[in-house]
């Protein structure tokens, strides 16, 4: 299946790339098999995600999942963000070939890891 226009747009114009110096929730996860890596840093205030930034290394779906994820979670409460699933992320991207679904799994895993680290 071809990559969607949303996918291509995020790949060419990544949103929220980088790190937050004042982050109070950080996670850095690596897919142990393919070594794709995603780092997420969040500023959480009063139970709400005020800002999200990401860094990613790996195949294009991993780069795009990071970008789309930060848009999806910005402004959400922790409880709302915890409800986010791999399917939600895949829908927001406009779908991915099944062999690339691991990229969405890594993104959700990194999100949950960051949310559980809120200081």
């Amino acid at each position: 299946m071809p990559y969607s226009p949303v996918f291509k747009d995020h790949l060419a114009h990544p949103r929220n790339a980088g790190e937050l110096p004042n982050a109070n929730a950080i996670a850095d996860e690596t897919n142990p098999i393919c070594c794709d890596r995603l780092r997420l840093s969040l500023v959480v205030k009063e139970g709400r995600i005020e800002a999200a930034r990401y860094l990613a290394y790996g195949c294009p779906p991993t780069l795009v999942c990071g970008s789309v994820l930060t848009e999806l979670i910005s402004g959400k409460t922790i409880e709302e963000a915890k409800q986010l699933t791999r399917a939600d992320l895949l829908n927001a991207i406009g779908g991915l070939p099944s062999r690339k679904h691991h990229a969405a799994a890594l993104a959700i895993e990194t999100l949950n890891s960051a949310l559980s680290s809120v200081a």
């Binding site: 291509k8 790949l11 060419a12 790996g58 195949c59 294009p60 062999r99 691991h102 799994a105």
Partner: peptide, 23 residues
């Protein structure tokens, strides 16, 4: 692969010997 697709978006066709598939 990330670089390849980025180049392809701007019309430059190249190849890579590495491939990421099914994780």
């Amino acid at each position: 692969e990330g670089l390849l697709i980025n180049l392809d978006l701007e019309g430059v066709a190249v190849s890579t010997g590495s491939a990421c598939s099914s994780g």
